[in-house]
Simulated assay, not measured.
Amino acid sequence: MKPINASDPEDDSVVSNDTATSLGALILSLVFLLGVPGNFFIVWSILVRVRRRSVTTLLILNLAFADGFLMALTIFFIIYLAKQTWVFGDVMCKGLFYLCNANMYASIFLITLMSVHRLVAVLFPRKLPQLFTEKIVRRVVLCMWAMVMVFAIPSLVFRDVRDDLDEHGKVRMVCAPNHTLPRYVRFQYAFETVSGFILPYAVIITSYVLILRRLRQTKFRRAVRSEKLILAIVVMFGLFWLPYHVINMVQVAAEWYEEGSKQREILDTITQSSRAVTSALAFISSCANPVLYTFAGKSYMRKNGFGFMAKLFEGTSSEQSAAKASRVLATDRTVFSNGDTLNDSVAYTAQNGSVDET
């Protein structure tokens, strides 16, 4: 266990500031109350009530499972912030932060897969059945989870329990980073931000730019409910995770200055005063999706009751033929105007033919 150090330059634990700690505990409490039942209701709806699952539905199932599991862990962090001392031991310290980091990667990678799927559906509709079969999607998701577990290893290695002094001079135990060299700090936080935010988000933004360009070339330009919902998920994730990654970069920048320098002190102060709040905000992204789904499916509540979520996710599979989708467009345009289901097959009539989206 690391000894007491009242002036540790790397004290970026989430309990390093009383005000931020209190606000973080409040945010996490609200997140827990919304996120746990919300995400597991989504999992239950898809597994029990949805009879035919499209690619998008399978990805949303994995996202809801990851978010719901993370929300269940927030109780430990609420206790940590409330007591302002870590009482769960070194193994739980490493394990909980490892699982949280893994969830961050899983969420952004799943959202990236959703965006790429939409891109292929719009730009290369006739290749969609070959590229996104259920078997291929399951294998890709399995590989993604394996990659997630590997990417999160630094948070397992560079963290442990140590004794420290709070702002009032009292001894407390904190679950905090244990970097022994500045280059380890730069590596972990830069790797987190680049691989877990910048690169995936670049793929997502590129996908939607290409999707929008393609839709502008079509005669049928009305946005589909599934497209809007996925875009909303993307935006929400970015808004809630951006502050966390900004603080990561501030931490990285601080390590380039000498200890005791004015610039280092300013950057360390920003990190220590913001870490709890930005970490708590990142948790909000995991409870925001059920709220989005509820608003998207509110038109089904009166008719379907607790089955409204299943009705939202239920639709024809993404492997339907272009001919069938074209018949839907030709004979029943109310499918598009009403947005009946999240994954109804959508055919965009382009200048050079039809483009199917599922």
Rank of each mutant, 00 (worst) to 15 (best):
N5P: 01
E10D: 13
D11C: 09
L23R: 06
G24K: 07
L30F: 10
F32C: 05
S45R: 00
R53D: 04
N62G: 06
I75E: 01
F77A: 06
L81K: 08
K83A: 15
Y98F: 08
Y98G: 02
L110C: 02
L110Q: 11
I111K: 01
T112V: 09
F124V: 13
R139E: 15
V140T: 07
I153T: 13
F158T: 03
D160F: 04
V161S: 05
D164V: 03
P177M: 04
T193D: 11
T193F: 02
T193L: 08
S195D: 14
I204M: 02
L210Y: 05
I211T: 10
R222I: 08
K228G: 05
L231S: 09
V234Y: 01
P243M: 01
W256E: 15
G260I: 00
K262Y: 13
D268A: 07
A280G: 03
A280I: 10
L281P: 02
V291I: 04
Y293S: 00
K298W: 07
S299F: 02
Y300I: 02
R302H: 08
N304L: 06
N304G: 07
F308H: 05
A310F: 00
S317I: 10
Q320V: 15
S326E: 14
T334Q: 11
N343P: 04
D344N: 07
Y348R: 14
Y348M: 08
A350L: 11
S354G: 09
D356C: 15
